[in-house]
């Protein structure tokens, strides 16, 4: 079994949802374990093999000085490093701290804030080490995770496309909810991969997969204003799971100009 490639799963600041996607594979899990040796995956097993590892899946963002050092050690032990999920690729929902005064938050939340060692920002893995591939999503898609693992093992490029959610909506035959109902939707500026789930159930896209390849957020914001949305409501659309992704951050910042101290 030692001649199989080894897989390690690492957690940083995150909810665990993305790494649990690996366990959600269920039907394909046996094929995964036949293709790789799961060397380190604390959510699945206490047995941990020593590195180095052929493939590391890294979940979570960097929010503490300790994690800032730990990600360097992970990189050094990993032949291929794939960042999985919105936290690891954009800083996650916890990157909302990037727009606030962290010291003030600490003093509000904790009785002894001086015991907390944290960074002022939540940042993606690629801000700290070289990342070989970023798999987007909050959470990631099981199908795309399997595709990335398969592609890494085969030494090919994953079939993961940076185009808009709209293309997936149209492929599954969902009429545009923004056009047909006036429902605000981030789909046109968001990367595909989820299969356009939310619009299929009448909900606007929340932007879980982060900005698409060339997001024209300014044009979408203009249109949302025309639909009657308030500036603050539009800003909240951009300030969720991928709030600190540069394109969404800029969109949110532009909407916030003049309203924040």
């Amino acid at each position: 079994m030692t001649d199989k490639p080894t897989l390690a799963v690492w957690k940083f600041a995150s909810c665990d949802g993305c790494q649990l996607t690996l366990l959600d594979c269920e039907d394909e899990l046996r094929a995964v374990t036949e293709a790789v040796t799961i060397a380190s995956f604390p959510e699945a097993s206490r047995a941990v093999l020593d590195g180095p590892y052929d493939l590391s899946l890294v979940e979570g963002s960097i929010t503490t000085p300790a994690d800032r050092a730990r990600i360097q050690a992970v990189r050094q032990q990993s032949r291929t490093l794939v960042a999985i999920g919105a936290c690891a690729t954009a800083g996650g929902i916890q990157a909302l701290r990037n727009f606030a005064d962290v010291q003030a938050l600490l003093e509000t939340v904790y009785a002894r804030p001086e015991d907390i060692s944290t960074l002022a920002t939540s940042t993606p893995i690629a801000d700290h080490v070289t990342v070989d591939f970023e798999l987007r999503g909050c959470p990631i898609s099981k199908t795309q995770l399997l595709e990335v693992i398969t592609a890494v093992l085969a030494g090919r490029k994953p079939n993961v496309w940076p185009s808009s959610v709209c293309l997936e909506c149209k492929a599954r035959g969902t009429p545009c909810i923004m056009v047909a109902h006036g429902t605000p939707c981030l789909g046109p500026v968001t990367q595909a991969g989820c299969g356009a789930i939310c619009p299929a159930y009448g909900r606007g896209c929340y932007g879980c997969y982060g900005p698409m390849e060339t997001p024209n957020t300014a044009a979408l914001v203009d249109w949302l204003r025309g639909l009657g949305m308030a500036e603050a409501a539009i800003q909240r659309l951009f300030r969720t799971y991928n709030a600190a992704a540069p394109d969404f951050r800029q969109a949110g910042d532009r909407l916030g100009e003049g309203r924040h101290g």
């Binding site: 808009s164 709209c166 293309l167 046109p188 024209n216 300014a218 044009a219 979408l220």
Partner: peptide, 13 residues
């Protein structure tokens, strides 16, 4: 180019 979202909807429909 300033107005277009490059979302691809026009080509899909």
């Amino acid at each position: 180019g300033r107005r277009c979202l490059a979302c691809g909807n026009c080509t899909m429909v």
